[in-house]
Amino acid sequence: MANTGSVSSEQTHRRPVRWYILVFLAPATLIYTIFAIYPIIESLRLSLYEAGDGGGVFVGLANYARLFGEPLWADQFWNAFKNNIVLFLMHMLIQNPIALALAALLSVPTLKGAATYRTIFFLPTLLSVVVVGFIWQLILSPLWGVSPAFMNWLGIGSFFKPWLGLESSALITVTLISIWQYVGIPLMLFYAALLNVPEETIEAARIDGLNGWWIFWKVKLPLILPTLGLVGILTYIGNFTASFDLIYTLQGGLAGPDYSTDVMGTFLFRTFFGFQAQLGDVYMGATVASALFFIILIGVGLYLFGVQRRLQRYDS
């Protein structure tokens, strides 16, 4: 440090320590490591242990063998996994197209009142699941009568069913409620992406004689493909981690009827923290959590190395 004035030739070859990199990275890395990674690892580590006298006993992968080997566990696991996949596909096929369509309409330049619509569409997303769960249970309640009465008015009253209570329809109903609530998020992402499409590109297309519909398909959509990919992967992750709250609120910890709405989140919660007569088992809970972690890891890996690369190539 003393010879700042006379920089030796050796030092010019070596780069100076770039402290600013540390300054930029340290705060986020520290908070994240202490308050997210450390506690999670503490938990996941438990998947290699089982309850013993005065603490855990190391058992290697025995818990995983139980999870996938014993019908009691494996049945629950695959049932929850299957439901999660249904949930994910329905969000991809219903939520995201609706969000894209609404975003496309909102981004029409001459549209009046876009800000008002935007606020309204985003409103359900802001609500707590406690509120959303309560509202929809009331609306769909066969007793309270809003939806039966409405359907009678439309002349299709005989089609009303206690949807949340039937094994055949409970999962679909829960998913539709989730879509109602969360459609605002992909909507916002698509909207922002559509607004960022350069005006000149659209103008050029218009001069080429394309109408609004074709401009959307041929010009805008390819340009927002990276956002589509992002929404896809966020839907995938959210479907495994965020679906818990709504299902727990609507259908309870046993995810009835007969586990037909059980997802990884509710299965995990039940196992980890216990539910009523079932006592929490942190060791099996950690095992389920680790399995969940790997499922998400595989999905994100596929996205990062498959989809995203292709999209970027397309983009450039």
Partner: peptide, 17 residues
């Protein structure tokens, strides 16, 4: 595992349904 107490919830509901 399963506790009979929890299992009865599901079973009794299934039978009524």
């Amino acid at each position: 595992e399963l506790p009979l107490g929890n299992q009865l919830w599901t079973l009794a509901a299934n039978v009524i349904n």
